[in-house]
Amino acid sequence: MFQDLDQTLAKLVQDAAAPEALRAAQVAFDTPDRDYRPDQTTLDLFLHEIAENRLLRDEARVMERTGDSVTSRPPALRLDCGYLVTAWSHQTAGLRAAEEHALLGAALVWLARFPTVPDRFLQGTMAAQPYPVPVTVAQTGEGRAMGHFWSALGIAPRPAFGLTLTVAAEPFDQTATSPIVKDVLLKPVLKA
């Protein structure tokens, strides 16, 4: 599932209509730790957090009619998949910062265009999502600082933004099938 989400993002940032800087960059999904040193200009989308979106939780069973029966199943689990987006250049000094900032800016502006991922970009299991896949760009949770994150990776802080996509997962295979009620028979109540 997550590899299909990665491939969906790769298609999105390398679309023919995307800015040239995005199309020319390598797209990676690596951990940007102290050993990370790409050998070419790279946009790295590191999946660092997966959490249930409780605001989208639905307790009602999903009902589907098939012929003369109804199948019901628990609703899909909705997951927020949080990516850290960073830009990497193999240039030196000021040229490196300029190239990284230009790439990061192009990525932010391009991804912010999409309130949801258009169907044409959805890859693998993402193409069968029961809901549109929302995109949230550059919004961090209140009170969440990134300093501890960079410390854990063992590198100095660098420019980055958050990208969250919300996907559905079907962890349940509990289905119940029932015949459709076609007739209702009412019996009169006799009073004594």
Rank of each mutant, 00 (worst) to 15 (best):
L22N: 03
R23L: 03
R23F: 05
A25N: 11
A25G: 08
A25Y: 05
Q26S: 12
A28M: 01
F29R: 11
F29N: 11
F29A: 10
F29V: 10
D30I: 00
T31W: 02
T31V: 14
P32T: 01
P32M: 04
P32F: 04
D33V: 12
D33C: 10
R34K: 15
R34N: 13
R34L: 08
D35C: 01
D35M: 04
Y36L: 03
Y36H: 03
Y36K: 04
Y36S: 03
R37H: 14
R37P: 00
R37Q: 13
P38C: 03
P38D: 00
P38R: 03
D39Q: 15
D39C: 00
D39F: 01
D39H: 11
Q40W: 00
Q40K: 15
T42N: 10
T42E: 08
T42P: 09
T42L: 08
T42Y: 08
L43S: 05
D44I: 00
D44M: 07
L45T: 04
L45G: 03
L45H: 04
L45I: 12
F46E: 05
L47P: 05
H48D: 02
H48F: 13
E49Y: 06
I50S: 09
I50W: 00
A51E: 15
R54N: 09
R54Q: 11
R54Y: 07
R54F: 08
L55C: 00
L55R: 12
L55M: 08
L55W: 06
L56Y: 04
L56S: 14
R57M: 09
R57H: 13
D58T: 14
A60S: 08
A60M: 03
A60L: 03
A60Y: 01
A60Q: 10
